[in-house]
Design a binder for these strands. Structure first.
Length: 717
DNA sequence: CAGGGTAGCT
DNA sequence: AGCTACC
């Protein structure tokens, strides 16, 4: 069941190997194990895809929602829905009207504010990153992980070949010849995938699918073959099967609408068409590189590396609407968007150098895409205000800047009709001690300074957990993985503890999530209380003169020595309280009343209990020992927020206790009323809705705009 | 396409 | 600045 013990000897040699010859990706170890193919350097890529992500996040926030059909609504469409709703015929991207027709009982949660999703999304990425540094995000709910090196290490230290069994499904699996060729590595990959999925579940409460294959394309394609909460490995001999099964070229990631249309014009509609289509003709249409890439994709070849995503390169906020026809409306919308964007930017900690405004105009024909944008540098003094937390000032000074850009696109004196406005900060710079020229891994260590792309992550992973004498649980990685915590702080991944700044923008610095630790039981109930203590737990900052690339290759004790001064900072988690659009949650339609409030509590608990036991992987050939399945029960129940919970935001004159005694339908009605009345505009601090924000602090900004009045921007100048 | 993000190439 | 792609 577990690795027998082969111990730290192994580790040491590993370290030395890496240290001595950092350039060779897989040194002796690779050759040692299994077979001839060494140079081939077949990669093992994992693709993770969380199940109905937004719905899961909402179900964690309010577990009562687990039992009812739930849709996440943005404007008039259901962007995703839970599996209860899917059973009733609701699908992604269905209109609210259609969805309600299919399922009158559908509970709806507004999902336009992405805050919670974004936060959870980064927690997942961070968690994965803490096990293996090569992680690439794709949207909020998918991640690629290159585990090639981790696999090699395990291969090198595993003697018993019978251990190479697959976890989860194997695509089109027929023969059980698990020994051949790449199978052992894929099998190890599937074991890692299972462990990572389990970690995501136990630490974050989320379920998802994984695909295991030799490249990103294949991993992604195969991950969807068994849908909720399962995983599938793809053997090389079945690559053509999975490619052949694709119903159209559009199913190939990388072939979008436009590309598909151009191919269609050439008479290429199926995968097979593309496989057989002469490369030369393809080159004429797409150019060399793209043509080759397309041909490769058609046969399941994809050499694109897993590229560390790191912290986002831009932050944006947008809103769409049916029609906007006046400059006044635009001004207000821009102001509103800027307020939340500036706050987010502040939490990120980096200073944006560029601002961009984009719009979408209505036009009966050609109504789909076509956005226009204008951008400009952000004056330093404004940037400073953003990072220093003078958010209101920053907004006040940015609004005129934005309006200038607006008027470069929109002539305020003639009629217009807009359907979307987007504001964006980009060219994000981290101030802070010299990020070594490389622009690399440093970021993962530094706490206030930049993340940045860490190109390709230098191809080598550092230690993973694997040394485990017996707990093959990667939890052990806490000790080997450098910047993780040293002692078991039990922090709880989830929040409620808060840190002023540096949130998910880049949590990269020190994976907070991972600090959650054996003893999940204890952690959560105390989470809310302990935060002050747990927060300054332990992260380390690399001494300035230490090259991180080198650092990570060092043996653990040396690392520890280098790091000895404590670290500060916050663990992830966010002060939820600040979000105005936060709460009310169940917006329902009349016809049904899912729960009464007394039920509410018990239902919620039930739901939480169900959680873990129910779905782990399916055809797993072997299950976790009972004890290891770390149940996040408390952490889940802690998060609940239904009417009456402290999570809820009530108008000032409403006593939550009283509120909770009201009949549920009354609660709902009140809740939705408040929601509608509450303008999205988050009031930045505890301040009054100071409408007058613009009038104070007139600094005669270096150039343009005395902020005296914004009216001058109503017209083009 | 919807919706609210992202990233990369040109 | 725009397009294409991804979720």
């Amino acid at each position: 069941m577990d690795n027998s013990a082969d111990e730290m000897e192994e580790d040491e040699t590993e370290w030395q190997n890496s240290f001595v010859d950092p350039a060779a990706p897989t040194p002796a170890a690779a050759a040692a194990a299994s077979g001839p193919s060494v140079t081939k350097t077949h990669k093992i890529i994992l693709h993770f895809d969380l199940d109905c992500f937004y719905a899961q996040v909402e179900m964690i926030r309010n577990p009562a929602l687990r039992e009812v059909p739930l849709g996440i609504q943005q404007k008039y469409i259901i962007v995703t829905c839970n599996y209860v709703a899917r059973e009733q015929g609701v699908t992604k991207l269905m209109s609210v009207a259609d969805a309600k027709e299919k399922c009158p009982e559908l509970a709806l949660v507004k999902g336009e504010d992405l805050t919670h999703y974004r936060e959870m999304s980064y927690k997942v990425t961070e968690l994965l990153t803490s096990y293996c540094p090569l992680v690439e995000r794709l949207g909020f709910d998918e991640n690629f992980v290159d585990v090639t090196e981790m696999v090699e290490r395990r291969l090198a230290q595993t003697v018993e070949s019978y251990k190479f069994s697959f976890q989860g499904h194997v695509y089109n699996h027929i023969s059980a010849d698990v020994q051949a060729g790449d199978h052992p590595r894929l099998a190890l990959g599937s074991q890692i995938a299972a462990e990572l999925r389990e970690a995501i579940h136990s630490k974050l409460g989320l379920t998802g699918c994984a695909g295991i294959a030799s490249n990103k394309l294949l991993a992604k394609l195969v991950s969807g073959t068994f849908k909720p909460n399962q995983q599938t490995s793809l053997l090389p001999e079945n690559v053509s099967d999975i490619m052949g099964c694709l119903s159209s070229l559009r199913k190939v990631p990388g072939v979008g609408h436009q590309t598909a249309k151009r191919l269609q014009a050439l008479g290429v509609v199926s995968i097979k068409d593309l496989q057989l289509f002469p490369l030369n003709d393809l080159v004429k249409e797409f150019g060399g590189p793209t043509a080759q890439r397309l041909k490769n994709l058609a046969v399941g070849v994809d050499d694109s590396p897993v590229t560390c995503t790191g912290a986002p390169q831009s932050l944006s906020d947008e809103d769409s609407f049916k029609k906007m026809t006046s400059t006044q409306e635009a001004l207000e919308k821009i102001q509103q968007l800027l307020s939340s964007l500036v706050e987010r930017m502040h939490k990120d900690g980096r200073q944006p150098q560029t601002f961009r405004l984009t719009i979408r105009r209505y036009s009966a024909t050609n109504k789909w895409f076509s956005r226009e944008s204008r951008q400009c540098p952000i004056p330093n003094h404004i940037g400073q205000k953003i990072i220093s937390g003078s958010s209101e000032d920053a907004v006040v000074q940015l609004v005129p800047v934005a309006m200038k850009l607006f008027h470069k696109m929109v002539d305020g004196s003639t009629a217009f009709h807009l359907t979307l406005i987007n504001v964006c900060f980009s060219n994000l710079q981290s101030r802070g001690p010299a990020v070594s020229g490389k622009g690399s891994i440093t970021s993962f260590f530094s706490q206030s300074a930049s993340p940045r792309k860490t190109q390709t992550c230098s191809s080598r992973c550092q230690s993973d957990s694997s040394q485990s004498g017996d707990s093959r649980l990667m939890d052990r990685h806490v000790s080997t993985h450098s910047m993780i915590t040293q002692h078991k702080s039990q922090l709880t991944m989830n929040s409620s503890s808060s840190s002023k700044a540096t949130l998910h923008g880049f949590k990269w610095k020190q994976s907070s999530v991972v600090a959650v630790e054996e003893n999940p039981k204890a952690s959560c109930s105390t989470a809310g209380l302990n935060t002050a203590e747990t927060n300054n737990a332990t992260t380390h900052r690399l001494p300035p003169n230490v090259d991180p690339e080198v650092f990570k290759l060092l043996p653990e004790e040396i690392q520890n020595e280098l790091l000895s001064p404590a670290y500060s900072d916050s663990l992830s988690s966010t002060s939820k309280s600040s979000s105005a659009t936060d709460v009310p949650h169940i917006s329902k339609n009349k016809s049904s009343q899912p729960f009464t409030d007394s039920q509410n509590v018990t239902e919620v608990k039930k739901a939480a209990n169900k959680m873990d036991s129910s779905d782990t992987a399916t055809t797993m050939s072997h299950q976790w020992p009972p004890g290891t399945s770390a149940v996040p029960e408390e952490s889940i129940t802690e998060r609940l927020s239904f009417p009456g919970s402290s999570d809820c935001e009530f108008p000032g004159n409403v006593d939550p206790e009283v509120f909770s005694e009201l009949p549920p339908d009354v609660q709902r009605e009140l809740t939705s009323e408040w929601k509608q009345q509450k303008p999205i505009l988050k009031v930045l601090s505890a301040r009054k809705p100071s409408r007058s924000s613009m009038s104070k602090d007139r600094k005669t900004a270096g150039k343009g705009s005395q902020a005296n009045s914004l009216f001058k921007y109503f017209k083009p100048s």
